[in-house]
Computed example of a mutant assay.
Amino acid sequence: MTGQPMVIAVHGWMDVGASFQFMADSLLAQGFEGEIVALDWRGFGLSDTSGSDAYWFPDYLGDLDALIDQLSPDAPVDLLGHSMGGNIAMSYAGVRPQRVRRLINLEGFGLPDNPPEAAPQRLAQWLDELKEPAQLKPYASLADVAARLQKNNPRLPDDKAAWLAPHWASKRPEGYALRADPVHKRVNPVLYRAAEVDACWRAITAPTLWVEGADTQVLRWWGGRYRREDFDARLAQVTQLQRRVLPDAGHMLHHDQPALLAAEVSGFLR
Rank of each mutant, 00 (worst) to 15 (best):
Y176I: 06
L253Q: 02
D74Y: 11
P258I: 11
E117C: 02
H184S: 06
D158I: 08
Q242P: 01
Q70C: 11
G86V: 12
P189L: 11
G12I: 08
T239F: 03
D59G: 03
E107H: 06
V211T: 05
A118R: 10
D53N: 08
S91I: 15
H167N: 09
A140Y: 02
F22H: 08
Q121R: 09
G34T: 09
D159M: 00
W221V: 10
T2G: 03
R96S: 12
G110L: 10
F22C: 00
V238R: 07
E212W: 05
N153P: 01
G81R: 04
P115V: 15
A18V: 00
W210I: 13
L269I: 15
G224I: 02
M84I: 05
A93L: 13
L123K: 06
H82Y: 10
M252P: 01
P189V: 12
P120G: 04
F57K: 00
D181F: 10
W13K: 00
E196D: 15
N152F: 11
K137P: 02
V95T: 13
A263E: 14
G3V: 10
F268H: 01
L67E: 08
L178Q: 11
H251A: 07
V211A: 05
G45P: 03
A263H: 05
D25P: 00
D78T: 13
T2W: 00
G34P: 05
P247M: 05
D232R: 09
W126S: 01
L27Y: 06
Q237N: 07
F268G: 00
